[in-house]
Amino acid sequence: MPGRYCSLVQASAPVFAPGLTAERLGALAGGSRMWVNGSVLHYYFFAGDRDASVIPVPGTAERRRVSWGGAKEQQDVVRECLAQWQGLGIGVTFTEVDDRTEAELRIGFQLGDGSWSAVGRDALRAGLHERTMNFGWDLTGPGERGTALHEIGHALGMLHEHQSPFAGIHWDDEAVYDELAGPPNFWNRDRTFHNILRKLDPDEVNGSVWDPHSIMEYAFPSGLILEPEQFRAGLNPPGTLSALDKEFVLRWYPPAGPSRPPALVPFRSAPLGLGPGEQADFTVEPPETRTYTVGTFGDSDTVVVVFEERDGEPRYLAGQDDAGTSGNATVRVRLVKGRRYFVRVRLYSSWGPGETAVMCW
């Protein structure tokens, strides 16, 4: 029986300004979907029958309304898997909320809609009443814990491992299309190409080598892979977090330090001194209530995110990614006297003689 596979939504590839160097393009492709470290990702579970959508009945021409709600035993599997990722010591934390408008991750359990997730910061593009993740089958079945770990990996910014150009997989394309066209997936050729046969850009993938043991790797039956020869009889990853999965996520989200970040004082620039992929954090305690601008200066590509401290934890307030443009990342946001805010700046790449700095004014 063929496996049930994660089906990522086909999203437009990021478009960057023409004329960028290969170094800048590589840094942007590799980090554009990753959260800034220190983020608290709030998650919400749809429950009951109030939230639903109409989906096709697989293998038929019929359509039906199916709820997004999930039972507690389904939710508990996801909670346990979120805790497993966080238990690695990563600098991103997960917190459950009961208000969907407070959540960056909104999780549904619509049966028949497949299992999928927005990749990293792509979740911020979804409407506040839309799902950013769905589980389309029973997570309490044997081996299905790996499904939840896999989708959370996507939410952290990871992509499918078998689509890595470093894998060296030579597919029997038509056999793959035939396999996925039937039950239980019922995928058309476009969906199969997007989720299996399409090769990712080398700068997008989870690492510089293929990891057949990754939680982001599908299992495949025999007859689909022609090369490497040892996988002609099938590819069967264990469905757990591999050593390279852990290495990748800890590289992007290293454990946060215990000390409070230094203060970012209005009208006083703070040099960053960052290398590619590194991050600087600051605290802002505004002297007056008004609209402030927070932005970077210098020849660099950065993402700037502002959080407000509420109930002892940072809540996402606003952010901008300059996405390889000629300008710098700049955020205009209303800050209130007596409250504490955090500014996090991640550097993609820099060039030119000057140093990159950040200022609040």
Rank of each mutant, 00 (worst) to 15 (best):
A118L: 10
D76E: 15
A71T: 14
E102D: 15
G89M: 04
G120Y: 01
R79M: 07
D113M: 12
T101R: 13
Q110Y: 01
G69S: 08
V92I: 15
I90Q: 07
G114H: 06
L82R: 11
G108F: 02
Q74G: 08
E102K: 15
R125N: 11
E80D: 15
G69C: 09
V78S: 09
G91R: 12
G108R: 01
A103C: 07
V119A: 00
D76L: 12
A103P: 13
I107T: 03
A71W: 05
T101F: 09
D99I: 10
S67F: 02
V78R: 10
V77E: 05
G114M: 05
R100F: 13
L124K: 05
C81N: 08
L111Q: 14
E73H: 13
G114A: 09
E96H: 10
C81Y: 00
F109R: 05
L105F: 13
D122I: 01
S115H: 05
E80N: 12
K72F: 01
T95V: 15
T93N: 07
D122L: 12
A126P: 00
E96Y: 02
A126Y: 13
E102R: 15
A126V: 05
G89E: 03
L82E: 10
E104W: 00
G89C: 05
I107H: 03
A126W: 04
R106Q: 03
A71P: 06
R100M: 14
D99Y: 02
T93Q: 14
R100A: 13
G112N: 06
R106G: 07
V119D: 05
Q110V: 03
A118Y: 08
